[in-house]
Nucleic acid binder design. Structure first.
Length: 219
DNA sequence: CCTGGGATTTTCT
DNA sequence: GAAAATCCCAGGA
């Protein structure tokens, strides 16, 4: 189908990798089922000086993967109930990663109602669509969709079991190029979300998204 | 348009 | 013990 992005792709400047990930397709494979989405929004976490990055206060057990090889997944839990999925960039020793914030799906995935207790299927999905929705917390009113980092992970069943995986190996998660070229003019740079604590780094325009996409978490 | 609170648990000080 | 790379909802201007 597409050409899988390799270690060389990820072993470059983090801002470059972040921008070039727009329009690429992320593939999640579980058994013989696949779910695929087009990446439409990302954020760069760029080196040890970046006060918004987990790596800014040194290496810890949680963030060690960011200091490692490019092309590995960095998955962590946030706010006690969501996972965030990142791809490590740049050479070993330079801690950096790109957060995948939103992917575009077919319209069947747009704002499905939350799974209620005891319900195991998402009714609006077509029968041939893979069912990769992770369980929701009790009483959650979260919609099943992919326009945000937590919701994307939920829909793609990404949790800490996928932390530290080589995603250039086409195992159960990878990113591929299907030949779509994104023009600079269709790319928006914006401030990152939820990093108000990051002093001067909170104003860096290190969030990138596709102009006009309805799947972006925030415009 | 904006601000703020609650849910929930891991991580770090 | 506090904060957190989130999300949803309510309330005020």
């Amino acid at each position: 189908m597409g050409k899988i992005l390799d270690k060389k792709f990820y072993n470059r400047n983090t801002l470059t990798v972040a921008k070039e990930l727009l329009g690429k397709f992320i593939v999640r494979k579980i058994g013989d089922k696949k779910i695929v989405g087009k990446i439409v929004e990302v954020e760069a976490y760029n080196g040890p000086q970046d006060l918004a990055s987990h790596a800014s206060r040194g290496k810890t057990e949680r963030n060690a993967i960011m200091f490692g090889h490019p092309g590995f997944s960095y998955v962590y839990m946030i706010y006690g109930m969501y996972y965030c999925f990142n791809i490590v960039t740049e050479d070993r020793g330079f801690p950096a990663a790109v957060l995948v914030r939103a992917v575009e799906m077919n319209d069947a995935y747009k704002n499905l109602p939350p799974l209620s207790k005891g319900r195991t299927k998402v009714g609006l999905l077509k029968p041939q669509d893979p069912l990769l929705i992770s369980p929701l917390p009790r009483g959650s009113k979260e919609k099943i969709t992919t326009n945000g980092p937590g919701k994307f992970c939920r829909a793609f069943k990404i949790d800490k079991k996928l932390n530290g995986m080589d995603i250039t190996k086409k195992k159960n998660l990878w990113v591929e190029d299907r030949g779509k070229k994104i023009k600079k003019a269709d790319m928006v740079s914006a401030k990152r979300i939820g990093v108000d604590y990051a002093k001067e780094y909170k104003n860096k325009l290190w969030r990138f998204y596709l102009k006009g996409s309805e799947w972006v978490s925030r415009k």
